[in-house]
Design a protein around this nucleic acid. Structure first.
Lengths: 231, 231
DNA sequence: CGTCCAGTTGACTCACCTCAAACGTGGTGG
DNA sequence: CCACCACGTTTGAGGTGAGTCAACTGGACG
């Protein structure tokens, strides 16, 4: 068994490159406090690639990631997949408008999640909801908007650069990306193929911008170059 | 002056093709009741292509469309533009998490909007917010997710078909699309070029699926064929 | 040491983009 | 009322970025 990496997404650092996002940081909780989301059961474990809930399934509960990484995605009839978002420890997923989930959720790697109760926020339970919940929903909206821009108007190398910046963690030895996901996941998140992901990473390595220390760990040698690709 | 078309987006009808969306319909108000959004001033008029607010501008107020169509978009430094959404009469835009707008908003055609007050929902004014507001934010989130799927994993013809279904209005003579926007707007919404939009529409016309009655009006002759492209 | 599978690389293809020219419609002025 | 212009749109020809298909590599594991 290999050493377990604590995957995370260091928002404040990684987003330095996104001037337009800077003001979000101070706005509200991306990760709402526990007390407004009562747990609906014990912590659940899911092995890698296990389905947590399916698109169309009744959305009685939603979840908070305890450890590991979760992806939410949609499938087309011919098998094409679009990954909408990745969620790391502390983040909440599956909280949706309707009675059914719009996307499915799967474990990217072995992970643990805690189910949260939807009931207190259903239409039966009052006219108002906690402010934090609104901030949370709107943060999700903003994230989805960013993703749309990424998917619509960026080249492969710009997409990959954005992805690396999203996951870069600062260390004493520089910025490092520990990948919980496969090339396939990255491809379906960025709207590319695994071959293009691989070629683009190799290209960035040849250009001395990154270094592929292992297949799941990337060292960022020139973060400025990556940031310059974002505009 | 040409006759004014009342542009609209007949959600319930147009979305028939989207099985996965069906359950949204009964969920909550996409267009919140007036009383939870106090007007912050008189109705404003904007001529075609006029900026309503810019990306980065302080978001003191947001808006409700009275007539016409509004687009929200982002620009990249080299001029590439991604249109995030179009808003028609009754819809609300510009309500965002942070202190600044993440996208700019512009008038697609001559339009009128009413400013709404943000204050009552700021962090100063209490611990809870109206439930309707949460439903609204989450509806926006769901829409953005749909758009991500569209942009990431669909071909040009599938994108155009989805766009037409989104705007198709049922009439006694069949489904009709009245376009408030130029080919350029459509292209930037779908992540394509104007030439591809034009060619794809011509292709659909050759295939007897649509008919370009004028440059701004499209008759849908075979809506089933369009729906079959969605999965 | 062999198997397996994720990842990489190469050769080729194609969907969409780019550049350029032609078209058409609405508006303006003679 | 018609000629002309401007600009959005259409169409064509050619280029290219990313996809497809296929072979190879290399680390993990038995």
């Amino acid at each position: 068994v290999t050493a377990q990496t604590a995957f995370s997404r260091p928002t404040s650092e990684a987003k330095k490159g996104f001037a337009v996002r800077a003001h979000i940081v101070g706005t509200g909780e991306t990760k709402p406090a526990d007390d407004i989301f009562p747990a609906a059961g014990a912590v659940l474990s899911f092995p890698q690639d296990r389905l947590i809930y399916a698109e169309g399934e009744t959305a009685n509960v939603f979840f908070k990631v305890v450890s590991g990484v979760v992806r939410t995605c949609k499938f087309m009839s011919d098998g094409r997949r679009q990954i909408d978002a990745f969620y790391v420890a502390g983040e909440i997923f599956g909280f949706e408008t309707g009675v059914e989930h719009l996307l499915s959720a799967e474990a990217v790697c072995d992970c643990m999640v805690v189910p949260l109760r939807r009931k207190p926020f259903d239409s039966l339970s009052g006219e108002t909801v906690p402010r934090e919940l609104l901030a949370f929903a709107m943060r999700n909206f903003a994230r989805a908007q960013e993703h749309s821009l990424l998917l619509g108007r960026r080249s492969a190398i710009e997409k990959v650069a954005a992805f690396l910046l999203e996951w870069a963690e600062p260390t004493k030895a520089g910025h490092v990306v520990n990948l919980a996901m496969t090339r396939h996941d990255i491809a379906d998140y960025l709207g590319l193929t695994i071959e293009t992901i691989s070629r683009t990473l190799s290209q960035l390595e040849r250009d001395k911008i990154i270094e592929l220390s292992t297949v799941r760990q990337i060292l960022i040698k020139d973060i400025t170059a990556l940031r310059d690709m974002q505009f």
